[in-house]
Write a protein that binds this DNA or RNA. Structure first.
Lengths: 259, 259
DNA sequence: CCCGTATTGCGCGTTGCGCGCAGGAGTGCG
DNA sequence: CGCACTCCTGCGCGCAACGCGCAATACGGG
């Protein structure tokens, strides 16, 4: 193998997956080889499933990695969909609901795309992306400072917007949840916002997949007033749910079949 | 529109996204139209970011189409990049800038992803998506009611957030622009917001690709105070720019090479 | 050293593509 | 009702990109 072939093909994949698109002409100029060679490279890479050919170039098959969020969307997909399906079924026509940031609330938004006569307010970009093309859903973004890690909004603008609205139901996510301490998050800014969200809503649901139950990864807590509902998936261990029952929290285990 | 065009294009998207791949020949046979028509359909759908063209057909774009990728697939990419590159070069370290909703401002956001010591406020989802993973850029979302068509925010929440901030520079998009009347949009809600955005900013730029110059597609206008700058691309006809020169508007023609 | 394998550049014929043109269907207006 | 306007459609043409075969070249093992 003439030297550099392997490296060149790897570089083509890297270029294509970072910029999304790569043209035969550009690649040819970049590597100092003829377009024929590039075409052959692309044919190889396409056969290997690393790229897709286009007219005049190649396109990344799975665009940017964007690991953190995409992976979180990927993991526990079935559990999140089950939770989201149950949550979506609680919502009545004409209501105004509040969706927190996070992948589980994003899954809920996905279920609501076909809804009509519904107002959704949110602090999460995943929710916005799901509902961006949902023509018949009225969407209010609360705004605020973008937290890059969670793709959600926090801070004064979000709090100010919250003070101008109330909601029939709030669906909150969490990094951890405890029967007495409430919701656990990485920062007090987030927990203050979640407390506000809960206070502005008639009914509060905490959507959390079973692996996060009982976890206490951080030390900022949002206390919740009695009457909230914990929604989790069927993999939840009974002993993990017991403290919530004892504390008088309503516990819902979402059926994967979509009940 | 001859009946069925809309339905056929929707069906093409469905076929492509379910089977992953669709050829021009097959589609032509399936719908009983000529390959030319299918190619035009695909061109439309590609510009809308719903598909990617391949040699002889089309391929489904990833489940969650990456913003920047959709933009590259979309129309007038080179022009928008040229405008965005010039605009990005105007911004100084430590500034706070305001980015309107729209694909051109999305392209500007793309150029700012690697920036440091910069605060970006925006009403556009394309901007948010571009900067979602830009760790070192401080992003403020103004919030508001989502306009599904333009993927931007308008209304009271956005206006309230604007009243709490001021900016060094504002970069506005437009559906049309006129030397005397200012910015043309589909609704007065949008134009009022743009007027507010302009008033809250030291320097105002209108980013608009040349095809929109002189177009008056709607009848809601945002008047701009003197001193604003029109930024367009090299395809702009001199006679289209003349009225702006006469009105004392600073006109910038962005060099595609990236000057 | 020799040989097999993989790669490269080049020229060829083929194929799909974009564009311009003309006709037709739907829409809004006087 | 006619008229202008817009959008979609089919067709033909020039062109760009493609795939393929050929000969030359580079690398690695026996």
């Amino acid at each position: 193998m003439p030297r550099g072939t392997r490296a060149r093909r790897a570089a083509i994949v890297r270029l294509a997956t970072t910029s999304g698109l790569a043209s035969v002409e550009d690649l040819s100029a970049t590597f100092g080889v003829t377009p024929s060679t590039i075409r052959r490279d692309l044919a190889h890479l396409e056969a290997a499933g690393e790229l897709a050919r286009t007219y005049g170039g190649a396109i990344a098959v799975a665009a940017h990695p964007e690991a953190s969020l995409r992976q979180r969307l990927g993991e526990a997909f079935d559990a999140k969909r089950a939770i989201a399906t149950w949550a979506a079924a609680q919502i009545r026509a004409g209501e105004t609901v509040l969706l927190d940031a996070g992948s589980t609330t994003g899954a809920l938004a996905h279920e609501l795309r076909a809804a009509r006569d519904l107002t959704v307010a949110t602090t999460g970009m995943t929710v916005l992306e799901e509902l961006a093309t949902a023509e018949h859903v009225h969407v209010e973004c609360l705004g605020g400072t973008l937290r890059h890690l969670s793709a959600g909004f926090v801070g004064p603008l979000a709090e100010a917007a919250l003070s101008r609205m109330t909601f029939d139901r709030a669906f909150l996510g969490a990094d951890g949840v405890d029967a007495r301490d409430g919701i656990c998050e990485a920062s007090l800014q987030q927990t203050r916002l979640k407390e506000l969200m809960a206070h502005r809503s008639e009914k509060v649901y905490v959507l959390i997949h079973s692996a996060k139950l009982g976890r206490r990864p951080f030390h900022a807590w949002a206390r919740l007033d009695p009457g909230w509902t914990l929604v989790t998936d069927a993999d939840a261990a009974p002993e993990a749910l017991a403290p919530f029952h004892e504390a008088g929290v309503e516990v819902v285990v979402a059926d994967p079949a979509g009940g």
